[in-house]
Design a protein around this nucleic acid. Structure first.
Length: 460
RNA sequence: GGCCGGGUGGCAGAGUGGCUAUGCAGAGGACUGCAAAUCCUUGUACGUCGGUUCGAUUCCGGCCUCGGCCUCCA
């Protein structure tokens, strides 16, 4: 079965056929670095990480580009509010983003270009658009002329008439058409600016992705991803600029992850349901956050709930318990992705289905009797985990995770109590053994007596 | 107003024109010093009204309802 992907452009699932199977290109819109990432930002990071891992399985050479937007009016405003320089703000938030992405067990992209390092390329593209009559200068701005592109609006599925009718924002007086958008705008002395044929200024939002994607992946490339909210206007405009400047097709497959809500409501600061990835990492392991995100198909709206996170932790407990049971056995077939997991992911990245198979593999592992069988099941489970970015940490590390600022028993204290209980059991002093069990239970520690040993873990 | 995507068992969440995932929670059983874990068994699910069909949760249409987008929020 070929890899099937839902293409926003055609509104249907299509068989993926790369332009060049020896160099598959994927561009995903990365963060604007003005603040810590919130959980909505985390969704595309995780979803496209799974696609990246899958593509790497299927093709020998995948180039994953995810940009950092480090020039933006929100950045300017935030730096002023924080009383820090723009450079300090963007460096700090970029680093925080990298830490969060790593905590969610996502692979770094192959190339992570920053917008400010590609201003020259953007200027060149804007000049081309001007020369071809797709852009015009007005009051120090350069604007893209939407009417100059007949099939503008195809990606987001709206006609130019609709755009004009629906425009609810005051139209800047220098625009020839209400739908026209900024390619370049003037910068006063106190804002970041670069010299250009149109004076000192800074780029509009959309042009950076057009410039950087073509620089690293070519003017036509395979996959372009991002959140659904970017379909319009960002991706529509990127597409328009790129096609008009280069005269060739742009991205061939457009993938968009659905929106994120919190406890059934739109996430917003005013509702008090706004979480950063950081906030959550203090309360739950990154792997649990990752699994939670993957339990809903990427294309569906995702409802983040405390209960959902709890269930994911329980699910990971189950999977890691299965692995703990075969800790001493060397896995077999570690590199062979189980066929049903592969099939699920090849069907438009059906992670919920893949996770269901993960559970079935765990059940098989739990039921395995012979060592050979256990080794095979363990290998299959781990291989399935690899492509999902799950089950890769040390089993005991998973069970010992503690929330930030926890004041409970530390590992050594738990070990000491467990040992005292083992001694009590050997002496058949079950009253003392049960007292210790209760003491540990009160501290959130679950004990599991096995043949000749006692394992422990921290409950949720 | 225009456009888009949803409504599945107690909960989350896939999927399918007939054989009805998976996990959590619940019930019963096996195992266990007690537990936990594990395994086995179990639960008349598909918003509503019509249509197509031998048969629809799955296809088509109306309706209800939820959410989103409509110029810079992933």
């Amino acid at each position: 079965m070929p890899l099937m992907l839902y293409n926003t452009m055609s509104r249907r699932k299509e068989a993926f056929q790369p332009l060049d199977p020896d160099r598959v290109g994927m561009y995903v819109c990365g963060p604007t670095v003005y603040d810590c990432a919130h959980i909505g930002n985390a969704r595309p990071v995780i979803v496209f990480d799974v696609l990246y891992r899958l593509l790497k399985r299927l093709y020998p050479n995948v180039v994953y580009v995810r940009n950092i937007t480090d020039v933006d009016d929100k950045i300017n405003a935030r730096a002023r509010d924080n009383d820090e320089t723009i450079g300090e703000l963007t460096a700090r938030t970029t680093q925080a983003f990298h830490q969060d992405a790593a905590a969610l067990n996502t692979l770094p992209p192959d190339i992570e270009p920053r917008a400010t390092a590609h201003i020259g390329h953007m200027v060149t593209m804007i000049q081309t658009l001007l020369a071809k009559g797709h852009a015009y200068e007005a009051e120090g701005h350069v604007l893209f002329s939407v009417p100059s592109m007949p099939d503008y609006g195809r990606l987001s599925g709206r006609s130019q008439d609709e755009l004009i009718a629906g425009a609810r924002v005051e139209v800047a007086p220098y625009k020839k058409d209400p739908a026209d958008f900024v390619l370049w705008k003037p910068s006063p002395g106190d804002l970041p600016g670069w010299d250009s044929p149109w004076g000192r200024g800074r780029p509009g939002w959309h042009i950076e992705c057009s410039a950087m994607s073509s620089e690293y992946l070519g003017v036509t490339f395979d996959i372009h991803g991002g959140g659904q909210d970017l379909v319009f206007p960002h991706h529509e405009n990127e597409l328009a600029q790129s096609v008009c400047a280069h005269g060739q097709p742009f991205a061939r497959y457009w993938l968009h992850n659905g929106y994120l809500m919190v406890e059934g409501e739109k996430m917003s600061k005013s509702l008090g349901n706004f979480f950063t990835v950081r906030d959550l990492l203090d309360q739950a392991p990154g792997e649990a956050i990752r699994l939670t995100m993957l339990t809903t198909h990427y294309h569906q709206p995702f409802d983040w709930t405390a209960e959902g996170l709890r269930q994911s932790r329980t699910a990971l407990d189950r999977l890691y318990l299965a692995l703990r049971g075969v800790a001493g056995i060397r896995p077999e077939g570690r590199d062979e992705l189980p066929v049903d997991v592969l099939a699920a992911l090849k069907d438009d990245i059906n992670t919920p289905m893949a996770i269901a198979h993960l559970h079935e593999l765990a059940t098989q592992l739990n039921k395995a009797v012979t060592t050979a069988e256990k080794a095979r099941c363990k290998g299959a489970l781990l291989a399935a985990g690899d492509v999902l970015g799950l089950l890769q940490q040390d089993v005991e590390a998973w069970f010992r995770w503690t929330p930030t600022g926890s004041s409970g028993l530390d590992d050594a204290a738990v070990e000491a109590l467990v040992q005292r209980r083992i001694d009590a059991r050997k002496a058949k002093d079950f009253a003392e053994a049960d007292r210790i069990r209760q003491e540990l239970a009160d501290a959130g520690i679950v004990l599991e007596d096995g043949a000749g040993s006692t394992a422990w873990r921290r409950g949720c």
